[in-house]
Every structure is written in structure tokens, then in C-alpha cells.
Design a protein around this nucleic acid. Sequence first.
DNA 1: GAAAAATGTAAGCTGAAGCTTACCAAGCTT
DNA 2: AAGCTTGGTAAGCTTCAGCTTACATTTTTC
Lengths: 105, 105
Amino acid sequence: MAYDEVFLALADPTRRALLETLRRGPANVKTLAAPLPMSRPAVSQHLKVLSDAGLVMCEAEGTKRIYAIDKEGLAAVRGWLDTMWDDALDAFAAEAHRRAKGKLP
Amino acid sequence: MAYDEVFLALADPTRRALLETLRRGPANVKTLAAPLPMSRPAVSQHLKVLSDAGLVMCEAEGTKRIYAIDKEGLAAVRGWLDTMWDDALDAFAAEAHRRAKGKLP
DNA sequence: GAAAAATGTAAGCTGAAGCTTACCAAGCTT
DNA sequence: AAGCTTGGTAAGCTTCAGCTTACATTTTTC
């Protein structure tokens, strides 16, 4: 799993807006592009980035492409954050203990 | 809270590497820069981005600046992801229900 | 107080991300 | 089958992120 792709995908506000729309359920490209202040091809490009990152998946339905959130990508980010969070808590506790024991600031 | 800054900060592999080092406890700039394949000023710039995003905090100690993980930034990202996750689960369940009830694919 | 250590900042370069327009492909509709 | 709808892709432009070198600043040390 490439964290680089996932975080880079999440770094763009337009792509996060797309995800927030898809939060409520699947949608096709035209619907997704409608409220956004940019051209439809731009939205297609954003969707490709999200798709490559594993954050959304696509299913053809006639001429339409129905996009939906792919939980795998989100799970990966959650895992990374959880590890970071737990270790940071441990390090924080250890640091506090070290300070309380040794040199008081 | 500016998600833009946080996600943009996390999008860079060097900055994630810095966070993974800080996971194990606070460190100064020289120590953080040592294993990285770039100049020390570059690392300083990365630390500024992380700091602006609220992901790390800094404390002066003599001429040294001790950087440490700031849990607030991480918490913000976790919150965003959790909301996304929960809503995506609901939407997924609703979609499955809709399909099972109405037109079977 | 002069030299050294640690670090932030400015200026400049390079590559890549994001947008647009134009074009192409595939499926409905009549 | 001719035309409309939907949407992916290519080429080109512009802006910005990230790196480097050079310089300024602050605190410690001798």
C-alpha cells in the first residue's frame, strides 16, 4: 500500500470535496462535477487520482460511471494514524516520566 | 482547523518520515536532519510546514529547538477520517439495501 | 568578547500538480 | 444509423512545492 498516493490524494481540497459528496452514496461524474467550480475533465482527473490511491472505486452503468468510496484506502490511513497516535502517546508518557524523575524544568 | 494544511503536510514523504522519527520521542533539528538525504535548511522548512499544520510543536532549549509530535493535529485528521468512515459504512449499507429491494443487478 | 554551534530565513531554480480546451470512444434513443 | 449523452485522454500553460546555497541570529563556551 502506497501511503504516498493516499495522502497526496487527500491533500487536495477538490478531491476531499468529492469524497464528502460520495460519503452520502455513489454518484456519476456529471453529478459530481456539477457543483464544482471547474471543468468536467478536471473532475475526471481528480477521480483518477482518487481511484489510483484506492480511495474510490468505479463501476460502469451504461454510459455512466458510478463512483463510490472504497473503504480500503480509508482503512489504510486510519491504520497509519492509529500507530502514530499510540506511539506518540507512549513517547509523551515516557518523556513526562523522564522529566519528572530527572531534571525538572 | 485547516484540513488543507494538515493533509498537505502529511502528503510529503519526508515530513511523514520526520513524524515517524518523532513518534519515538522529541528530537532537535540536527538529529532529525542527520539520516535524511537533504540539506538541513530543507528539513527546517519541512518542520515549519508541520508546525503550521499543528502536527508538531517546538520548544527552545539553549541553541537547540526540540520538536515533538502535537497530538491535536493528528486528532483532527482522525476525526475527519472517522466521520468519513462511518458515513461511508451507512451509505454502503443503504445502497446494498436499495439494490436488494429494488432492481437486482 | 571572540569563536563555534544550532537553526531560521531569503533568493533562485526545477519539476510536477492542476486547470483548460480539444478530441475521441462508447452506449442510448429515436 | 444518425445524433445525443457521458466521460476518459492528450497537449499545453501556469503556478507552486521542495531543494540548494548563502546569510543572519542567538546562545554557549573558552
